[in-house]
Design a protein around this nucleic acid. Sequence first.
DNA 1: AATGAATGAGAGTTCATTCAT
DNA 2: TATGAATGAACTCTCATTCAT
Lengths: 219, 219, 219, 219
Amino acid sequence: MSAGGATAPRTARGARTRARLLQAAEDVFADVGYPDASIVRITEKAGVGLGTFYVHFPGKKEIFDEVVHDLNRRVRAAMTAAADAAPDRLAAERAGFSAFFRFTAEHPALYRIVRQAEFVSPEAMKEHYGTILSGYEQALTRARDEGQLGRVDPTVAAWVLMGAGELIGMRWVLWEGEAATRAAHPDGVPPHVFEALMDIVALIVAPTTEDRTPRRTEE
Amino acid sequence: MSAGGATAPRTARGARTRARLLQAAEDVFADVGYPDASIVRITEKAGVGLGTFYVHFPGKKEIFDEVVHDLNRRVRAAMTAAADAAPDRLAAERAGFSAFFRFTAEHPALYRIVRQAEFVSPEAMKEHYGTILSGYEQALTRARDEGQLGRVDPTVAAWVLMGAGELIGMRWVLWEGEAATRAAHPDGVPPHVFEALMDIVALIVAPTTEDRTPRRTEE
Amino acid sequence: MSAGGATAPRTARGARTRARLLQAAEDVFADVGYPDASIVRITEKAGVGLGTFYVHFPGKKEIFDEVVHDLNRRVRAAMTAAADAAPDRLAAERAGFSAFFRFTAEHPALYRIVRQAEFVSPEAMKEHYGTILSGYEQALTRARDEGQLGRVDPTVAAWVLMGAGELIGMRWVLWEGEAATRAAHPDGVPPHVFEALMDIVALIVAPTTEDRTPRRTEE
Amino acid sequence: MSAGGATAPRTARGARTRARLLQAAEDVFADVGYPDASIVRITEKAGVGLGTFYVHFPGKKEIFDEVVHDLNRRVRAAMTAAADAAPDRLAAERAGFSAFFRFTAEHPALYRIVRQAEFVSPEAMKEHYGTILSGYEQALTRARDEGQLGRVDPTVAAWVLMGAGELIGMRWVLWEGEAATRAAHPDGVPPHVFEALMDIVALIVAPTTEDRTPRRTEE
DNA sequence: AATGAATGAGAGTTCATTCAT
DNA sequence: TATGAATGAACTCTCATTCAT
């Protein structure tokens, strides 16, 4: 018997059931939160019997971790795909933020689930922020080396920009993002908000100039 | 505030018990999270009988709301007190962030509790961010009118700065803030992080100059 | 210290408080039933502090018993007063039933409370039915001796008539007795029901005749 | 009937458990009354785990309603079976009352449970009396049309007779019906009581004669 | 006499998990 | 693989009663 319990599917039918459970779990965790997301609720949404859950997952925490892992992978893929095509750092930021907000608008689960992870599964949370941040940091470091970033600390800048994305997303995607108006938001948030944010990002991510020489800091 | 349920204490003894329960609730919510914060746990920590809880609060959600409300009031008081003495906007930002990180270091409950509020009590969460943001926004608008702020949208800037504070605080106060090293952090986070953050803030909050004219956005 | 605990009032104020509690208890027991009638509810309705209850009554069961006792005394007084003035047995029945229904209409508590007494306080219940029945039985026995009653067993007849009163009262006073229409019911129930009942009573309570000689039974 | 909640059993084992719970509930409700009939008590008596209760019933009130419904169906079946074989109305009454008292003697739960229903579940109570009464009324109306009933109102007569049965049953079956003496009571109550009751019933349910013409009433 | 804070046993109910089918 | 019946620990909340003031 392998480590993870009764987990890996061995038939096509099993794989399908497993996928349905994962999707249902994502929905339910996002809808009602981890504590109120009962296994029955998940299995009912998935259209399978209660007992079936334990055929595919060892328990509630494990499926939660997997949902977080999935969302993390998908949001990073979306952001990377968008940013990679950009000619310079500022364009990459614009593309990355846009992708992030659009992903958020389509998968509110990301936010709602990650924010609860603190108590449910701190590892999952750290993994989520960790993976995103390390990629971000590398990109910024590279940009700085290429003179595309002002004299700011790439690590701190990465956390600042991520924080900006989080709260702007919370405010204008989750709190105010009605499906009706979303069509008018090509970047996930209202255009004027996106542009205002880009203005600020441009101040941070800007080619080094002589007259602006902030203190440089290292860890 | 004292609207519903068996709430307002009528004797000095009652007021003392109520306060003990509030403090215990803050601790327990921060320690184990809302769902695992049972009433027994709270009353045991407070050193009172289980039934006593319901003499003072109608239920679990209500005491949670009150804890959030309290923390919100206290953190805003701390930030306002610090920022009010500052000569200009940048100094105010420095003082405000410092106060915020120090408060966070001493009351990790703030973070841990607010982040859970999404499902437990969305109103409490919106109230929390709302009150902080509206103050912040006003201060920035005033600063802009006085020429102390670059041509950035004050509302969006406020959310960006708040997001920066949140994630920096999460990363360097909650995840890494051991009591041992805290003495060496006069601003709540390691000095080099604080200065790196201030560098970035300085880019955003900077006197208007002619050569930097980002697009201006209105709601 | 006397048997009944802290019960007998020693001042005029105390007596007033006690009476208010009794009335409140009657109302609350009738409204929500014994199990849901909490002491707080009673004291709130009475307009006194919770602790005051235990100054006047040893406990919940005791006040229940006293409420039953009171209602019993009052309904019997009403029925006796009405029946005593009647010239013959049939007239006495008519007056007695009328008094009973009218009392029921004004004090639905009687019914609702007595019916619950079975489990709360069997003694109280037996006392209630016992006192009413024994008076009834004596009256019927006397009537029989005076030739005003057919050859029916007075004991059984008393229980039959009481049962009739109970269900007719339940059906046409409690279930259907709206305050609005009550003015039109001089006997507590709709006139046609009352007369139909009297027709039946007249069959039971009728002067002995030669051709109707039912078997006579003794206990 | 199987409308709401986690109710209908899908396996034979489930059906057995459900039946055991119903029987246990009937016993416990009758023994200690609704408010003191805790779910633990019921499940212990049924010999199943506490949680099992909620697999089969949504809650306490629902099982109560079902118990009442069951008893109602059974007592009506017993009475109907007995009365249907009778040649005339008086014989039907005799058979019906006998069946009713015997059922009561064997299932004291009926009484004890129905009497509490007032507060627990008024609908259940009304359904109970309603179904019995409507059948009774129809039978009496038919009898009257066939000249087998004196000039009495069938509706009121039905309630009167039912009331008689209730109180006679309460007095001589519940209060005095010891298992020891029951063998000597072929009709559920002591023979002399039964005959005395039948004497009275005979006065009400009697062929129309010219010399007895009480007022006739209609609704 | 009057009060309300304090208490803990016990209530109904939920739910992650196990297991026989 | 899939299922749903079964379980009991743990939860939130109620309330009759005690007691210091």
